[in-house]
Each structure stands twice: as structure tokens, then as C-alpha cells.
Design a protein around this nucleic acid. Structure first.
Lengths: 193, 193
DNA sequence: TTCCCGTTGGGCAATCTTGCACAGTGGGAA
DNA sequence: TTCCCACTGTGCAAGATTGCCCAACGGGAA
């Protein structure tokens, strides 16, 4: 909120490129989408597009990447005394209040997210988040010889749960993600205990 | 129309600063207007404002300056065979089709334009246009010993007529400026012949 | 196959914007 | 009066955008 003008404008440009990409892809198909068209729609040069995203796939999936990065950020920022699960729940609560998006844009995004051409990028996004979350998780686990493994497994399973919750929420047009997440965590616990 | 992105964005920023200045001045008065407020409203830094305008007065009167500059430009661009008067009429015709503005903005501008604090700037604007027009007029007058004087007088009287026509059109919410201008020119002719 | 062309990613210089610093100004309170 | 403070204009460096460049890639026509 107290960020400078420069930072705010960068965020706005990135968002505007993402929005333009999603809109154009929904209108004319992911296949026929070009970087130039996205840049034009965002009133930005083709070169500037490259300064923000390495590919149109990244631009299209920026929403997912931003969300996951933010989630890990929020988990990290929870009080150190909280257990991993408590931190995750707490962060999810905060997380669900952010990212208020235009319903129509969300609708378009929903139909595009799982397009085959985007899956590699989507997988890479979650893989990166998984690595980051594993690091963060390690700090909230009791030290022990198998802590790294446990952190990785928990990061993977937590993100998997998150992925399903997010997908389900998207399909059900559900806003209250926290309840869904609690359910998912309970299910995981039951399944493994 | 075929201008580059950079140029278009500069024009947009200049226009946006002008619009913000007019809006804020109409809302809170010319006296309490600050450069910082204008820059903020245009989502631009205070330093950037200074890159476009030397003062808030210039920002407020940008519309007049742009219009007069454009008018002289159009007069210059008329075919060389046209007489001065024909060129002026032709240019005025083209001119009246440009500068389509938001009615509300025009309303605000109308109440501000003649504010005492802006008069020096307004006078300077017309003086500059007068010099430019005199140069342009000279090229359309038959050569003679008194051509420079005639060019200056005609430039001054033409712009005076224009000023009155513009003011009248603004007050009458009149779009068809050409007819008014023809009337004005006729009046001048009658008055001096 | 070979060639052509649209698309892409990125290097580079020119230009524009931002953020910061500093001096000058003018108005109002002490 | 003197001091204070908001506002302004401008120099400067860092960062961002643009425009132009070229090399690489892939799909389709000859």
C-alpha cells in the first residue's frame, strides 16, 4: 500500500499484460495468440512484453504463479511459533481475501488454465512453489534426520491439496476457500493415518 | 495516425495531465491547485509533470495552446496556391473536426480559461501563435515592401477573430465554427473597407 | 527437399520516468 | 521583523520502455 509509484506501475503493467493475454486467448483461441497482439492490447511494445514474461504461456498463467508465490510468502510470514499446519491454515485465510478478480475474467481464465499447451508452464509453476514451500516448511518442523524428506513430502501434499481446493473453488464459484482447505487437510489426515 | 507507440503515449500523458489539472481546478479552485495533486491524479511523478509543463498554468491552458498550434499547422499545410483567406477558411474547417472533447470537461474548461491567474499564460499563448501565423501568412501574400507589416497585421486580426469565434462557440455550445468564422471575417472586411 | 515468411527471444542504444536532493520563493505565525 | 513550512523548479543517477536489430525456429508452398 505504501509502495512507490514505480512499483505500482510495474505491477499494473504485468497485470494488464496478463489480462490482455487471457482475454485474447479466450476470444481467438490459445493457438492463434501472439506476443505482439498481447502487447498491443496492453498498449506496450513487444519488447516490453519480453521484459515481463519469457513467453505467452507465462503471461497466461501469471495468475497461478502470482497466487502460489503469494501463498508461500504468507506462510513464511506467519508467527514462528505456529506449527506448519496452523501457519498454512492462517495463510490460506489471508490469501482468500486477496486476489479479488473480475468474474468474467475469472470465467475466461477457468477455461484456459488447463489447456494442453499451458500444462508444462503450469507444472513448472507448481514445482517451483513446491521447492519454496519445502524450504519454508523445514523451519516449522522439529529438527531430525528425516526433516528434509518430511518437508518435501508435506510441501508436495499440501500444494496438491491446495491445487484441488483451488480448482474445486474455481468450478463451484466458491469464495470461502478456507473451509474447503480444512476439509482437504482432514481428508489427507484420515487417508494417511 | 501512423505514429509510434512512444509518441502516442507522450501525447496521452500530456492530455491526461491537462485533464487532471482542469478537473482539480474546477473542483477545488485554481488557487489551491498544486503540481503534486495534478501529477498524482494523472498517475505520474511530480518530476514528470515538469518534463511536460513548466507550470500549472501551462498545464491548465494546454488545450488553447494545442489548438492554436494545430491551427497554424493546418494553415501551413494548405496548398500553396490558396490565398491566405482561403487557407484560413480551409484550415478552420479541418480544425473544427478535431479536438472532440468530453462535454463536461469542456464545461469545466470554459469556467477556468479566463481566470485572472491564467491570463498571462493565455496571452503568451496567443502571442506565440501570432508570431508563427505571421511567418506563415507572409508566404501567402504577394511580395512587396510592406508584406511583413501586412502579414503581422493580418495574423493579429485573424487570430483576434478566431479568439472571438472560439469564445462565442464555447459559450453557445456551437459546433459549426466555420460559419461563425465566415461571419467574423465578413464583419472584419466590412468594418475596414 | 528447399525456400520463404511469420513469430519469437534477446542485445543494444536512445529516450522517458522516477526518486531524490537542493535551492529559491512566498505566505503566515510567533 | 524573523522563522517556518509548503510549494516549486531543476540537476542527476537509476530504472523502465521503446525501437531497431539479428539469429533461430517451424510450418507451409514451390
Amino acid at each position: 500500500m505504501t509502495t512507490g509509484l514505480r512499483e505500482r506501475k510495474k505491477a499494473a503493467t504485468r497485470q494488464s499484460l496478463h489480462d490482455a493475454a487471457v482475454l485474447l486467448a479466450a476470444e481467438h483461441g490459445v493457438e492463434s495468440l501472439t506476443v505482439e497482439a498481447i502487447a498491443d492490447a496492453a498498449t506496450v511494445s513487444r519488447r516490453t512484453f519480453s521484459n515481463y514474461f519469457a513467453s505467452k504461456e507465462q503471461a497466461l498463467l501469471h495468475h497461478d504463479r502470482a497466487r502460489t508465490i503469494r501463498l508461500v510468502e504468507l506462510i513464511r510470514a506467519r508467527p514462528a511459533r505456529e506449527s506448519l499446519m496452523a501457519a498454512v491454515i492462517g495463510a490460506a485465510e489471508q490469501h482468500s481475501t486477496e486476489f479479488a478478480a473480475d468474474p468474467e475474467q475469472e470465467e475466461r481464465y477457468r477455461t484456459l488454465r488447463l489447456h494442453p499447451a499451458l500444462l508444462p508452464e503450469l507444472v513448472a509453476t507448481y514445482a517451483a512453489a513446491e521447492r519454496d514451500l519445502a524450504v519454508a516448511a523445514e523451519e516449522r518442523l522439529p529438527a531430525g534426520p528425516d526433516t528434509p524428506l518430511r518437508a518435501q513430502v508435506l510441501a508436495a501434499t499440501l500444494l496438491a491439496a491446495f491445487r484441488v481446493v483451488g480448482q474445486t473453488a474455481l468450478e463451484r464459484r466458491e469464495r470461502d476457500v478456507v473451509d474447503l482447505l480444512r476439509q482437504a487437510l482432514a481428508i489427507t489426515r484420515e487417508g494417511f493415518c
